[in-house]
Simulated assay, not measured.
Amino acid sequence: MTEALETMRRTPGAPCWANLMVHSLGATEEFYADLFGWEYAPGPEQLGPGVHALLDGREVAGIGKLPPDRHLPVAWTTYLATDDADATAESIRSCGGTVAVGPLDGGFVGRVAICSDPLGAIFGLWQAAPHLGVRPRGIPGTPVWSELVTQDTSTVGKFYEHVFGHEARAHADSSEDFDYLTLLLQGRPVAAVHGVGRSLPHDRGPHWMTYFEVEDPDEAAARVLRLGGRVVQPPREGLSGRLATVADPEGAVFTVVRSRT
């Protein structure tokens, strides 16, 4: 799940960025710096106050500040790559999704939009500027996987196939009790869709989950608690490796994973 995804980073339809909008930018920067070792540089001014998180000088994720009058849920947003944000936005609308913001000019980073699929899961579009290179993957502190958690995979799987050209393939262990699709591009897995039916969290609804690579998910979960966050699901073995689902002090939920290589 590491080396292969590195080469798929900017392939249209592949997850290419993770961004978090928060109320307290400074406190959030401190939390993730302590958890992942991130450093920060200013983000593009066109997109409002915010920073890009860095590891060894290379960008890995973004954190922005919500306007004081916007009381929105704090959550990580998965961005999917596109070569043409305007055309992809039109395809999203025609396939039953919604384009809430943009596409708009993000300055030196390219064009971006915020959208949702037919069941309401929010995601971003990013048409990256040509000069931007591939970001680091598969090292501790980097996003390594994205998974859509939704009611069921049937309708929404077709949406992502039509809009982004994914091949949606049922997992080998799929059954009436385990509804799981892997989304592939050029035969390589880039993301997944997990249908959880009535187990979908009532306070979140359908959502994209961002997985961050760590060396030790048990230690990372304990550190989240020490830093003022909480453990949503304790460390366990999953399809991608040992993992834990946690939340930062503002409530943004994410998963830490030691992926199998």
Rank of each mutant, 00 (worst) to 15 (best):
T210L: 08
S240R: 15
T88Y: 00
A33S: 15
D179P: 03
L66M: 13
V101H: 05
L72N: 14
A172C: 01
L66H: 02
A61N: 10
P118W: 05
A61C: 10
L200G: 13
R169Y: 06
D173A: 11
V193R: 02
V253K: 12
P143A: 04
Y40P: 05
P130G: 07
A221R: 09
E30W: 10
S94F: 01
P67A: 00
G48E: 01
R111E: 00
V144S: 10
V256I: 07
L183W: 10
V214A: 03
E59Y: 01
E250P: 01
I122G: 03
T182I: 15
W145S: 07
D177H: 13
A87T: 01
S199C: 09
H52N: 12
L119H: 04
L185R: 13
A4W: 02
H52E: 07
H171Q: 08
P103K: 09
G229C: 04
S154A: 15
D152F: 07
G48Y: 01
T153K: 13
P235G: 04
D248T: 05
R223K: 14
V156F: 01
C115T: 08
E237K: 15
Q233R: 14
R70A: 15
P235A: 14
G106L: 06
C115L: 03
G64Q: 02
Q186Y: 12
Q151L: 13
I92W: 04
E29R: 15
V190G: 02
R260G: 14
T88P: 03
V112H: 00
D34Y: 06
P118Y: 09
L104M: 15
L119K: 07
D216T: 05
R93G: 01
V253W: 03
R135Y: 00
G37L: 09
L20V: 12
P249A: 07
P42G: 07
P118S: 05
A4S: 12
E213S: 10
A4D: 09
T210W: 04
T78R: 06
G197F: 04
M8Y: 03
T150S: 11
L55E: 06
S199M: 11
D248F: 03
T155P: 00
A221E: 00
H166L: 15
E167C: 12
F108Q: 12
D83K: 11
L20G: 13
W145Y: 10
T210M: 12
L55D: 02
A14R: 00
L80E: 05
V214E: 02
P217T: 09
I139P: 06
A113Y: 02
L35V: 06
G187N: 07
W38N: 06
L227F: 01
Q151I: 13
A168L: 14
W17S: 11
H202N: 11
Y32E: 09
Q46H: 03
A168W: 06
A75P: 00
V214F: 02
G197T: 02
V51E: 01
L227I: 09
T98F: 09
Q151E: 11
L184T: 13
R188W: 01
P217Q: 07
G50K: 03
T28D: 05
G238S: 09
R188Q: 14
A168F: 07
E6F: 05
D56H: 05
E176M: 10
V134L: 14
D248C: 06
E6Q: 09
G197K: 10
R226W: 05
L47R: 00
S154V: 15
G228S: 04
W17E: 10
R230L: 07
E215S: 15
H52F: 08
L66K: 10
L20C: 14
P73S: 04
